[in-house]
Amino acid sequence: MIQELSKAFSDPKIWEKIGAQTVEHLYLSLTAVALALLVAVPAGILLSRRPKLAQPVMTVVGLLQTLPSVALLAFMIPFMSIGNKPAIAALFLYALLPILRNTYTGIRSVDPAAKEAGRGMGMTPLQLLFLVELPLSFRVIMSGVRVSTVLIIGWATLAAFVGGGGLGQLIMSGFAMVRGSLILAGGIPVTVMALLTDFLLGRLERAVTPRGLRV
């Protein structure tokens, strides 16, 4: 197995493949997460203003996440045919929940004293949101983003099923040819990418957190 692996990796072609597919993989994942951010953060903020709506909305978004991923991908094909579009759409749906939930909880858990002080000092609702609520819930929102990103990088391997590209292709080839080395050639970079992204996001989070909030 190890011999086979080292043989497979000594082939320069496979490195080319890994490189190209890694880029695709990242593109799929990050696009999906970015779109999810654009939707879930504002949605989470709105929900925090309407807590009564929050529960039903969370339930629906939570249900999306329980759909089997392959089924969801297949379900996208009639609407978006094949390629990276249905893949991104499916990944986007999966990425929503952690970000939405954390934005909602994050904003809801901002110290009421800080909010009252802000209001009492004459902040408009938007100022309160941008000067107080978002900075104070940043860590919680960010941890939702990290969860989503790691999750999506893993799930993006399935994009290959609908012709969406990414490292899933290597894994699928490995399955088809019963070549464990190929599966690993696709799987290891995915894992490394997920860990690395989580680490980098953690560093980013720390870098932009004011000293007063650092633990």
Partner: peptide, 21 residues
């Protein structure tokens, strides 16, 4: 908002913004 900006306000839990100096 205008009214509040013209009135000082101090609360029990202090309510300083932890992310600001």
């Amino acid at each position: 908002v205008t009214l509040r900006r013209g009135i000082g306000y101090v609360i029990q839990q202090v309510g300083l913004f932890p992310h600001m100096t």
